[in-house]
Design a binder for these strands. Structure first.
Length: 433
DNA sequence: TCTGGGGTCCTAGGACCC
DNA sequence: TCTGGGGTCCTAGGACCC
């Protein structure tokens, strides 16, 4: 890389990633868990989605179904928690607010990761700055983070991953002017590079492209042909040329999904209707929160495809609404109408969901001339009041009756912890004896 | 017995238009 | 016998991410 391109490409990305985030959140409020093996389960207590170092060392892999490792868990007294997204979401917000103080240019990438562009920060030593970030986050939230610093997002990901396997780095790895890049990239398996997943990984390995270094040095034509523009960008990024920008603006979502596996098999259409109503309530809440309306809804339901002895039926159907809306009762009506079209008697359904799409800003509203007799202002007020009450007094304080009261189909959460930070009844209590 | 949920982007191909 | 060509829009599906 010549001096000229270095001037053009002067970005410095820091990827800040919370270590074992969900486990770390639980540990903040339950310090007994420190140094113990801990795992967090996905919704419905299905799979392992977060593991402490100790749990990883015992051979618990990411995404493994819970029932497959129950033996190891019990034998080693691994502590188990159901996902507590209310708690993790709140802790995430605290971490992100602190990170935003370190640079005006930040991308909130996921619940536990953010990219910071440091090019305009007037510090000489980015490594020291990374250590300061790390110290600040830990001191104020109790969450340990790793920091990877590089000239491209893809390289900052690699640096960050490296931190976690090398305790000598003390949580920060800066490869902005790293001399042994070939050696470093040679150690990264190609399928672990950000943007290259399992499918492309297998294809590349069959062509003897085994490491990030091999991929960086592979032919442009080959990569463009087999992987399109995304693959090419990844190659440039590994070469040190930034090709994936910081995404700073929080764009409204283009699709909003709410779906869940059931806690038991459901074959009764009335129960399915309750579930679809509940998911629609959740999805439309999110829709109004980002001040949008949707034009289409998709409803799907599925049987358990792992259970080969069961009759299978998986189907989805999209309909276009007569006008863009976020009015929950109407959308429930349409969604349950679609559900009844899809539903077949005699099948054991395990999961269903609602997807709102074709999303547009809530104003200006494109009114359907045939529906103009509706009082839109009044409907808006009703939804606003509903949302306000539910924000103030807790989710589902007010809800629509079609979602059911007993909800026998609801997901399993046998190991849930308290909502320490968001619910007055679940604050941390300390017994002094 | 028991296998998550919620997103994004890109591409190919069909429909349709002039 | 010979049966355009280019453009746009939409959708479905595949790949990826955490």
């Amino acid at each position: 890389m010549g001096a000229e391109s270095e001037i053009l490409n002067n970005k410095i990305f820091a990827l800040v990633d919370c270590n074992n985030f969900y486990v770390s959140c639980e540990r903040v409020f339950n310090p007994k868990l420190n140094n113990m093996p801990v795992v967090i389960l996905s919704n419905n207590d299905g799979c392992v989605v977060s593991r402490s170092q100790e749990a990883k060392a015992l051979g618990i892999t990411m995404g493994i179904p819970y029932f497959k490792v129950k033996n190891i868990i019990e034998k080693n007294d691994i502590k188990v928690f159901s996902s507590n997204y209310v708690l993790y979401g709140d802790m995430s917000e605290r971490v992100m607010n602190l990170l935003a103080k370190f640079t005006p240019n930040i991308e909130f990438y996921s619940i536990d990761e953010a990219f910071l562009d440091l090019k305009d920060i007037s510090v000489k030593d980015f490594t020291a700055y990374g250590k300061e970030i790390r110290k600040t986050i830990f001191k104020n939230t109790g969450i340990p983070v790793s920091v990877g610093i590089a000239r491209t997002k893809t390289l900052s990901k690699i640096a960050n991953e490296f931190v976690k396997h090398n305790s000598k780095l003390n949580g920060v790895f800066n490869i902005v002017d790293f001399h042994r890049m070939d050696k470093l990239l040679g150690q990264v398996p190609v399928h672990e590079v950000w943007g290259i997943g399992g499918a492309f990984g297998r294809m590349l390995m069959s062509k003897s492209i085994l490491s990030a270094k091999d991929f960086r040095d592979a032919s442009e034509f080959f990569i463009k042909d087999k992987m399109g523009i995304i693959g090419l960008r990844t190659k440039y990024e590994l070469q040190g040329t930034s090709a994936v920008d910081l995404d700073e603006v929080l764009e409204p979502k283009k699709a909003i999904m709410s779906s869940r596996s059931f806690g038991k098999y459901v074959n009764n259409v009335n129960e399915l209707e309750e579930a679809i109503s509940q998911y629609t309530i959740r999805a439309t809440e999110k829709l109004r929160l980002q001040k949008s309306n949707c034009n289409s809804i998709n409803v799907f339901l599925m049987t358990n495809h792992y259970k080969l002895t069961d009759k299978q039926h998986t189907e989805s159907k999209t309909i276009t609404l007569p006008e863009p809306t976020s009015y929950t009762p109407d959308i429930i009506k349409y969604a349950t109408f679609v559900l009844r079209k899809l539903y077949r008697k005699g099948y054991n359904y395990i999961k269903a969901g609602v997807l709102l799409s074709n999303i547009v800003p809530e104003s200006p509203i494109q009114l359907n001339v045939f529906l103009q007799n509706r009082d839109h202002a009044k409907r808006d007020r009703v939804m606003k009041t509903l949302d306000n009450i539910n924000v103030r007094f807790g989710r589902d304080t007010l809800k629509i009756a079609s979602s059911g009261l007993s909800q026998n189909w609801a997901m399993k959460r046998q190991h849930i912890s308290q909502r320490y930070t968001t619910n007055w009844n679940e604050l941390l209590t300390i017994n002094i004896s």
